[in-house]
Simulated scan of single mutants.
Amino acid sequence: MNKFLPILIVLLGCSSLQAQAQRRGSYTLLQAGGIYGLATTADHDPRHGYQFQFMFGRNFYDRLYLGLGIGNEVYRGRTTLANGNRSTHRVNTLPIFADFRAPIAQLSPLGRLGTMVNAGYAPSIGSDYFRGFMGKAGLTYGHLLVDGSSLLISAGYGFQQFGSRFFSDRHVQHNLFVTVGLFVH
């Protein structure tokens, strides 16, 4: 028995080091979803569209996630021209934002409810991408796929400010969003 005690201690030490090495101190999230426009401050109809986002950041012991993100949001809507005709147009933004996430409750062994908040700015890139501040807040549901990876569904409220160097039209749109993504933590 005394011969096997040092080997047992080494094996237990190695298994605890392996468990610590698997713990990630960071997270990544890749998600896509839809945007439903509610109201706008201009004489445009609310715009609807879609979004793609990538976020990465620091995982604080699966209790708090803080990071940065970049997205591509495409809005389509109709507007009334000065002559009374209606025109369909597309508006793009490329927001860079801070990402904050925190779990609220464990709903089941595989499901977790949480909150999310994004705040940032979309720079103007040429005449295709509009600039302006953006913000989003909502709830998330994460369903564990494998250890450290979850299917994440988010829904909430957002606003986007639109402005351009080429057009004098500046306005804000309020919207609802739903996204689905892969969350690796």
Rank of each mutant, 00 (worst) to 15 (best):
H143G: 11
T28W: 15
L81E: 06
L66R: 00
L38N: 05
V146N: 02
D62S: 05
Q20G: 08
I125V: 12
L151E: 01
L17Q: 07
Q160D: 10
A39F: 06
F4R: 11
Q173F: 03
T79P: 00
P6G: 11
D147R: 04
L139E: 04
G181L: 05
L8E: 04
Q173H: 01
R58E: 15
S124A: 13
L113S: 01
K3C: 11
T79H: 07
L113W: 06
A102K: 09
V91K: 10
L139I: 12
V10H: 09
T79C: 05
G84E: 04
P109S: 10
T93N: 04
H89D: 15
T140C: 03
A119N: 01
H143Q: 15
Q20D: 09
T179Q: 07
N175Y: 06
G13A: 04
N72R: 10
A105T: 14
R131K: 13
Q20N: 12
L17K: 05
L81R: 07
Q161P: 02
G71K: 14
Y157L: 13
L81K: 01
A39N: 11
Y121N: 04
L182M: 05
F130W: 13
P46R: 01
A19W: 02
K136H: 05
P103S: 11
H143M: 12
V180A: 13
Q51I: 02
S149I: 06
R23C: 10
S164N: 08
Y27K: 10
R76Q: 14
H185T: 13
G132P: 04
L144A: 15
I153D: 02
N2T: 14
S168M: 12
T40V: 09
G57C: 02
G181D: 07
